[in-house]
């Protein structure tokens, strides 16, 4: 899968030589120059296939030749120390990195077999199908109902405007059904069903984050990307989010970045470990990665000797 990265690796290690002792000893002869164990065999279909993805922020090489297949209807955890490129990687999957002017992205990401880094990709459609939940809860300063209806409304799927109401074409009922379904799916309905018109900023942090998940569900995504969704929350709210993620995996493909290794071990089916310098070091079944990692560096990281 990743044997074709040799030239790339050699040039990059010449500049960042600190954490890669292996290249100096075996780099010239061994094909697998990096300490890399990413051949993960899984049953079922790959929802997303990433091939040799490089990301640069200006001159900074943030992500180095990452290749990885993400199976559908499962939870994939991305772990690693700060600055290892796991969030960068996540933001490549729905092209949110396009919004950063200095970022250049090189490589291939295929979603259901279709390349998303090519001309003519409909970003609106892509981001509808690949939703995202952010680190800190970011509901809009609007009512709970409006927060959920926002996406479908802007896509023209729901029309509750003045003209629609005048023409008796309002989708208010449909909207309310959608709001209820999304809130139920995000395990928030019971807590807020009696105050849907209250401002979302009045909710607690955990509720806000579940609202953000519900908002993400409102546009019927197939993949949900989560960037440390529980890092700003207390343990109880975190537990609720974790339960929710496991439930969501029955229907959606979830990719979650987390700092918290226990969290990754608890909720994910497979885990990818990124280490400093923006390389994917090990990717495999979560139990295997945590109990018996192939890479020594990953073992050091997981047991707390490094990172």
């Amino acid at each position: 899968m990743s044997e074709n990265q040799n030239p790339q690796t050699q040039t990059s290690t010449a500049t960042t030589d600190t954490d890669q002792p292996l290249t100096t000893t075996t780099g010239e002869t061994d094909e697998r120059t990096r300490d890399e164990w990413t051949d993960y065999e899984f049953r079922g279909e790959a929802k997303m296939t990433v091939d040799d993805l490089d990301v640069y922020y200006g001159d900074d090489h943030a992500l180095k030749g990452v290749s990885m297949e993400i199976p559908e209807r499962s939870v994939t955890a991305l772990i690693g120390p700060s600055g290892c490129g796991k969030s960068t990687y996540l933001r490549c999957l729905n092209r949110m990195n396009d919004r950063i002017k200095s970022a250049t992205i090189d490589g291939s990401v295929r979603f259901d077999g279709q390349e998303i880094y090519q001309d003519g990709v409909n970003l609106v459609e892509l981001r509808k199908r690949v939703g995202m939940v952010f680190q800190s809860p970011n509901p809009f300063p609007k009512s709970i109902r409006e927060n959920i209806a926002y996406g479908p409304k802007k896509h023209g799927d729901l029309d509750t405007g003045l003209l629609a109401r005048l023409l008796n074409r309002s989708d208010a009922e449909e909207r309310d059904r959608l709001v209820e379904r999304c809130l139920r799916d995000a395990a928030l309905w019971d807590e807020v069903s009696d105050r849907l018109d209250d401002n979302a900023l009045g909710l607690s942090g955990g509720q806000q984050q579940r609202l953000c998940i519900a908002r993400c569900l409102s546009v019927d995504p197939e993949i949900i990307l989560m960037d440390e969704p529980a890092s700003a929350l207390d343990p109880i709210a975190t537990a609720k989010i974790e339960d929710l993620i496991e439930d969501l995996a029955e229907e959606y493909t979830v990719v979650i970045v987390t700092h918290n290794m226990q969290q990754a071990a608890r909720i994910s089916d497979q885990t990818a470990v990124f280490l400093t310098g923006g390389e994917l070091v090990e990717y495999g079944d979560t139990d295997q990665v945590f109990e018996d990692p192939h890479s020594e560096r990953v073992e050091d990281y997981i047991t707390g000797k490094f990172g």
Binding site: R99, V124, M132, F134, N138, Y150, K154, H155
Partner: peptide
């Protein structure tokens, strides 16, 4: 206006 709002909106595919 926090960038989070813009990110959230963009992540929903809103122009």
């Amino acid at each position: 206006v926090p960038d989070e709002y813009r990110d959230a909106s963009a992540a929903l595919g809103v122009s």
